[in-house]
Design a binder for these strands. Structure first.
Lengths: 309, 309
DNA sequence: GTGAAAGCGCTAACAT
DNA sequence: ATGTTAGCGCTTTCAC
């Protein structure tokens, strides 16, 4: 077999090229302020290739004080429906693609909503973190474990603290759009019960509907009961995967679905949908990028709302 | 605000406790062969806590030659249906939970099936890797970039090379089970077109059906056409999310679904299903664990098949 | 143009 | 019982 042994280091290259490791480093990183003769450069490059050299990013991180690792931390509870996972998967996969394209590596971790453990952020020295649907009280765990200065982007979470940059949909706009599509006046709402209570509240309020017309999805039994009680009314369903579950109990063609996963294609062709102008992953990614550049985040908004189409 | 500053290091602890960093290390890691007086121990622990000390895993990795990082690398192509992502998400999330529970951290990365880039394995010195649905030709890229000795578990991939440990379903058994459930004799099959051609072939063969009775899902148009042509025959559908798509075009209650995502609950209650005895994530995880322990992998099977229930 | 050397934060012989 | 030291693989300042 042709190769791949004990992983060459810069030292190995240096030895074989009769130069110092410093020189190897300069060549491999195209150091600006260094003038390396083309000859040496070539030689080093050759040898590096021949040895299948790959840099050890842990070592580099140590000196550069940047790891190139971005965390995606997802709050999960023991019992959650498939639709919720599918919903998060869409977001996470898209985000991962964007990050990977930028040369970052992505660390994915489930956080137990009951006892959030955020040590990973400090342990792995993550350069930035996305936190999805966090509970408001998690805020306390964070100040103990998370080094200041780490860009934190909260997705689907209302938390009034300067530390966090928040990204979420403009639910108010989405509801107007949804109502416009419905034929009947009287509507009910079916939505996820977020771990973040503030978000759940905010959405309820944005809907303008009374408490008893809003169903917070927890399990199918509850859903079925709610639907039975409201079979004569139109529903506005938040999220298309949730709509998928709803459609096991009711024909949803008269209802409106707010597509928070940007996947209208999973719905029946005739379904009434509300889409958003931008994908949440794109915007969340942009917010983090800005934050990493402008390390102070001084002229960045704490809240970014995604408008409906 | 109460804290969280520039991240304390062992040096800081040592200074404040008037001991050497070695001692700190011993205390923090409960070093066996070291006898530290309870008094010192206590003091060090106190200070560590007070300083919110969190170890830097990059530094530790460097000396221990183990990173505690496990990769989940997913082959993706530009255009893939939601159902495919949902399917992978189920597996990945479950796997991630298992790994996290064991104290590993998970690096998630999409691999472009056209030009797979596996440098991440060497760069991040991953302790083990799951590769999902890899093309057979990727095998060449791997020998160049991947250090020997890294445990590689291939999921949903047929590749006859000693280097890899493979996990997949026992399709033969699944098909028998499916056929037993169908009322009509004559059946067709609807399945994913895997990137790994060998797997696709293997499944076709296991079905015992002729080429024209097997539909490889690529897009909805093709599916619709196939279904129209075979409206009089029962279908065996591989994967419940794919079944979800199929059910947009046809009532699938007469069909059988092989639940490769372990999510029968997304199907109509009356659906005929084939389940598997164990979850694929659990088994894949076990294979990797075994591999990490028994570093040679000498008495481990190259192929592990998951039997149908 | 090139390299010696210090150091990122940590562990683990080896002394004492 | 505790400290000294030598690295892990890399970057970068500062001399030569």
């Amino acid at each position: 077999m042709v190769n791949a042994m004990k992983k060459a280091t810069m030292k190995d290259i240096a030895a074989e090229a009769n130069v110092s490791v410093a020189t190897v480093s300069y060549v491999l990183n195209n150091a600006e302020n260094q003038s390396i003769p083309a000859e040496t450069k070539e030689r080093v490059l050759q040898i590096a290739k021949k040895l299948n050299y790959v840099p050890n990013l842990a070592a580099r991180s140590l000196v550069k004080q940047k790891t190139g690792l971005i965390g995606i931390l997802l709050n999960r509870s023991a019992q959650e429906g498939v639709w919720r996972r599918a919903h998060h998967a869409e977001f996470i996969f898209e985000l991962e693609q964007l990050l990977t394209k930028q040369g970052y590596h992505v660390v994915l971790s489930s956080i137990d909503v009951e006892k959030p453990n955020l040590e990973i952020i400090a342990e792995r020295k993550l350069d930035g973190v996305f936190l999805i649907d966090v509970r408001e009280d998690f805020f306390y765990s964070i100040s103990k474990t998370v080094p200041t200065g780490v860009p934190l982007v909260l997705v689907d979470s209302v938390i009034d603290d300067e530390l966090f940059y928040k990204v979420m949909y403009d639910y108010q706009g989405a509801f107007s759009a949804a109502k416009n599509q419905l034929e009947r006046e009287s509507a009910v709402i079916i939505m996820e019960k977020f771990h973040n209570a503030g978000l759940t509240e905010k959405i309820k309020k944005a809907s303008g509907l009374a408490e008893e017309n809003i169903h917070l999805m927890e399990n199918e039994k509850g859903l079925a009961a709610f639907l039975a009680k409201n079979s004569d009314r139109s529903a506005i369903i938040l999220n298309e995967f949730l709509a998928g579950t709803v459609s096991k109990y009711r024909n949803i063609e008269g209802d409106a679905v707010i597509c928070t996963s940007n996947c209208p294609e999973i719905l029946p062709a005739e379904a009434k949908t509300v889409l958003f102008k931008n994908s949440k992953a794109t915007i969340a990614f942009r917010v983090l990028s800005d934050l990493i550049k402008d390390n102070r985040g001084l002229h960045l908004q704490k809240y970014t709302y995604l408008p409906a189409e």
